[in-house]
């Protein structure tokens, strides 16, 4: 096509089949329209004072903190899990892989209840944790992190496992022939090789944690400064003051998009 219609190919958009272009455009509109709706309803005149309202900054800070901690927790536990799923043959691997996706399928509120049944005061581990270490998780910031990590972890595991499967396992063999043990191979060869997939997974994980609502409010409750993240603040604002909810949503969106865009730039330009 490019050979026979060289002139046409130079024109913008030529060569992209309409059958793909049309649904692609529709898809984009579908994703962006709600954002437009949000912007259209934003009370620009009163925006500064609404932003300065007490609680907004607190909730934002708590959201960023907990989402980041949850992502770190997911990295710590999820990357080894992904490695296991991608690299080690063991009986029941298919089942384990299916179990990893449970939090994706489970309604987050149910996830929150499930977390309570495990880590709650009368939960399977909660009572023991409290009696042994004096740790209680519900209604604490740590509880928020736990709830967010529970819901967001599958995104990380699936992305990293995919990246691991996509890399040539023989690089790890090459590392072994050079004297690297399994752990060194993992840290010095495997992880750098899957870095792009890891970054993508961490971003998905972080974004999901940032937007987490159902599991958080069910497991960690809602208390300003301690467990009230932005999505919880938005939900409650919606009960009384739609405009306040719009402002809060906008803040959450702006900050997350800015952070994600910034990170993306760094990753792409890094050598």
């Amino acid at each position: 096509m490019t050979r026979t219609h060289g002139v046409r190919a130079r024109r913008r958009g030529a060569g992209v089949p309409v059958a793909l272009l049309l649904p692609a455009a529709l898809g984009l509109v579908f994703l962006v329209l709600p954002l437009v709706g949000l912007l259209a309803r934003t009370p620009w005149a009163t925006l500064p004072e609404r932003l300065a309202a007490p609680g907004v900054l607190t909730a934002l800070r708590l959201s960023l903190l907990t989402a980041t901690l949850a992502t770190l927790l997911c990295l710590l536990l999820g990357v080894p899990l992904a490695w296991l799923l991608a690299r080690v043959e063991f009986p029941g691997r298919r089942l384990v892989r299916a179990l990893v996706t449970v939090p994706l399928v489970l309604p987050p509120v149910v996830g929150g209840v499930a977390l309570l049944l495990v880590f709650g005061r009368r939960g399977l581990l909660g009572g023991w944790l409290d009696a042994t270490f004096g740790i209680t998780l519900p209604f604490t910031t740590a509880g928020v992190v736990l709830a967010e990590a529970f819901v967001a972890m599958p995104f990380l595991v699936i992305a990293v496992e995919g990246a691991l499967r996509g890399t040539d396992g023989r690089y790890e063999e090459a590392a072994a022939t050079l004297g690297a043990g399994r752990w060194t191979t993992f840290t010095h060869v495997t992880l750098p090789l899957v870095a792009p997939g890891l970054a993508a997974g961490a971003v998905l994980c972080w974004a999901r944690a940032l937007g987490e609502f159902g599991a958080t409010i069910t497991f960690a409750g809602n208390y300003p400064g301690r467990t009230q993240t932005m999505p919880l603040a938005v939900y409650l604002a919606l009960e009384t003051d739609v405009q306040a909810a719009v402002v809060l949503s906008l803040v959450l969106l702006t900050v997350s998009v800015a952070i994600l865009a910034g990170l993306r730039d760094r990753w792409i330009t890094s050598p």
Binding site: V113, L116, L117, G120, R121, R122, P138, F139, I217, T218, A220, G221, N222, Y223, P224, T227, Q228, L232, Y235, L236, E239
Partner: peptide, 20 residues
Amino acid sequence: TPVTLERDVRGALSKVRLGE
């Protein structure tokens, strides 16, 4: 000083039912 400010009455009640 509550530990949580629930989004609705069912949320508050379920915290009692679960013993939290």
